[in-house]
């Protein structure tokens, strides 16, 4: 059974999405066929629009339609605090808390030789030049505690510490409302490493 060419092409394109297998790709393509022509145009237009307008901010590498981005151009932000995140989604998650009032720097990934991602593929050089120029007082690394995340943190701290800025990493530990008794070894070890005086 073969799909006619335009449909086959659409399925093929959907299948390139992360986590989308042939079955889901088919389902998505059939959904598109069922859409009204207007809705389908809106979808196509938003893809082109997003692709055209969204850029990396030249300061912090956040995704934005303006440069510098909304955060970097916000006068009320504390410019001496800088939070380093792996990608824009982490930035958005932190912004949702409304707790952090400083600036960000988006690395655009984590160090991972297996994925061909060395430090040169990330926005590390830009980070290193921002820190002294913008007289940042503290760099907070908000990077996931995975093997690649930890490696990236180690790498960054090797380079940031000589600059004389305070470098910290957000704490990892027990989820709020959880029970010490049921925590796994890794979580407990992390929580112990990240303990603080009270």
């Amino acid at each position: 059974m073969y799909f006619t060419r335009p449909l086959g092409k659409l399925i093929e394109e959907f299948q390139k999405f992360p986590g989308v297998g042939p079955k889901s790709a088919q389902r998505m393509a059939f959904y598109v066929l069922d859409m009204s022509p207007e809705a389908a145009s809106v979808l196509a237009a938003s893809i082109i629009d997003a692709k055209e307008k969204v850029r990396h901010c030249s300061h912090c590498f956040h995704l934005s339609a303006q440069d510098p981005c909304e955060i970097c151009s916000d006068e009320k932000r504390d410019k001496t605090l800088m939070c380093v995140v792996a990608d824009a989604r982490d930035l958005v998650a932190l912004e949702r808390t409304r707790e952090f009032k400083g600036l960000y720097h988006v690395l655009c990934g984590l160090i991972s030789p297996l994925d061909g991602r060395g430090p040169d593929k990330l926005s590390i050089r830009e980070l290193l030049s921002r820190v002294p120029v913008e007289s940042v007082r503290e760099v907070i690394l908000a990077i996931n505690p995975t093997v690649e995340g930890d490696a990236t943190v180690l790498y960054l701290s090797q380079l940031l510490k000589p600059l004389g800025t305070k470098v910290s990493r957000i704490a990892f530990g027990l989820p709020v409302g959880s029970d010490l008794e049921y925590a796994d070894d890794m979580t407990l070890t992390r929580a112990l490493e990240g303990r603080r005086e009270i």
Binding site: Y2, T4, G8, I11, E12, P22, A25
Partner: peptide, 13 residues
């Protein structure tokens, strides 16, 4: 396997 057509050729996804 599932089959789709690509650029005139029959391709196996």
């Amino acid at each position: 396997s599932c089959v789709a057509e690509k650029g005139g050729q029959k391709t196996q996804l």
